[in-house]
Simulated assay, not measured.
Amino acid sequence: MKTGLTVLVPCFNEGEQVEVAHRELVGALREIDELEILFVDDGSTDDSLDRIRRLARTDPRVRYLSFTRNFGIDAVMAAGFRYAGQPWTVQCDADLQVPPEEIWTLLAKAEEGYDVVFGERRGRRDPLVRRGGSAGLHWAARRVFGIDMPRGASTFRLVRTGVARTITDLRLPWFIPAVPLVGARYAVAPVTHRPRTAGRSRLRLARLAAHSFELFFGFSLRPLNAVYAAAVLGGALALALAVPAYAGAEAGHLVAATQLLLSGLSLAALALVGRYLHRLLRDTGRLRPYFVRDANLALRPEDTLTGGLPGPPPPGRTPGLAADESVPSRTGRE
C-alpha cells in the first residue's frame, strides 16, 4: 500500500526562504521514501518562482504550481490538495515557524486512526495582537456563533489527501470547521513554535476581520436567527406604542425614538441578509477559485487560462513574401 507524504508549501513573495524551507524539510523527512514537496506560488512578484524552478531542476521530489495572480490561501489549498501526489498531505508554511521535525508528531498521531491531525502551537511566538485576535476569533466562533471549531487547531495540519479534496471541493470559506462538519475523524497534537526567521507576516488586522466574517456567516445561521427575533420583538414593540399614540396619549417622543430604532434594525437586517446573499452568489459563481500559469506537472485543462490548449506565438509575416505583393481576397474581388 502506498504510504507516501506530500508537503504542501504555500508561497507568496518568500524569496530566499524557498531554499531554506526545502533544505529543512528534506533534512527532517529524509526517512520517507515516497516524499513530494509541492510548492504553490500564489502569484509572487519577487523571484520566488525562479528559485522554485531551480530546485525542481535539481530535486525530482520538488513539484510546483504557479498561479496567474494572487488568489489567496483558500485557492492555494484547493490546488495543493487537488494535485498532491501522495495519500497523505501536510500543510507547512514557508516561514517554518513550526519546525519541520514536528511533522513526525502529526504522523504519529495519525497512526491512531485519524483522518486529520491539527498542530496546536504551544508557546506561540507571534505578536500579542495576532495571538489575541486568533484566540478571540475561536472563542466567538464556538461560544457566540455555535460553530464546531477544533480547539487549538492551526494551519499546520496533516490530512488524508482524499479527505482534503472532498472538503475543498465543497468550496467552504474555512477548512478547520469543515472537518467536523463532514464527520472526518480528527485530533489535535501539541507542536512547538518559533519566531519567524525571514520575511514578515502578510495577515493584517483588516484581512483577519474579513476572514472572520467568512467564518461566522459561512458556518452559522445564528446571526440570521437573531435578526428574525429582533424583527418579531420590534414589531411587537411598534404595535404596543401605536395603540396609545392613536388613542391620543402623550407618546410622541417615544414613538419617534422607536421609529429610529426600528429603522436602524431594518438597515442592520438588510446588511446581514445581503452578506448571506453575497456568500451564496460567490459560491455559486462561475469563476474558478484559481488559474495556473506555470507548473512542472500535468494540469487539468479547466485549471489553465487556455483550457489546456497549447500557446504558440502569434503568426508573423510569411518568409519570402514582399510587403507590396498582393494577397488574394477571400471573395475573389480586387
Rank of each mutant, 00 (worst) to 15 (best):
V117H: 04
E325T: 15
L203A: 06
A184Q: 11
V7Q: 03
L107Y: 03
D95I: 07
R300P: 01
N296L: 01
C11Y: 00
E214I: 06
E334C: 07
A256F: 07
T68N: 00
V76T: 05
L181H: 10
I167Y: 08
E24I: 08
L280R: 04
L270K: 07
R23S: 13
V9E: 00
V255N: 03
R196A: 04
A84N: 09
F217T: 14
V232W: 07
L172P: 06
F145A: 14
I52R: 00
L270P: 02
L281P: 02
V292I: 15
E14W: 01
T168Y: 15
V40N: 01
A226W: 12
V163I: 15
T105W: 03
Q17T: 08
L158I: 11
G248I: 12
L241K: 02
A110R: 15
L221C: 05
E24P: 01
R160H: 13
I37V: 14
A257K: 08
I147W: 05
L38I: 01
F213W: 09
R122Q: 15
A245T: 11
A298F: 03
L96M: 12
P195D: 07
L65T: 00
P190D: 11
V255W: 07
L107I: 06
R53Y: 00
Q259I: 15
L29N: 10
L25H: 09
P289A: 06
A231Q: 11
R288D: 03
L265F: 11
A256I: 15
R288Y: 01
V98F: 02
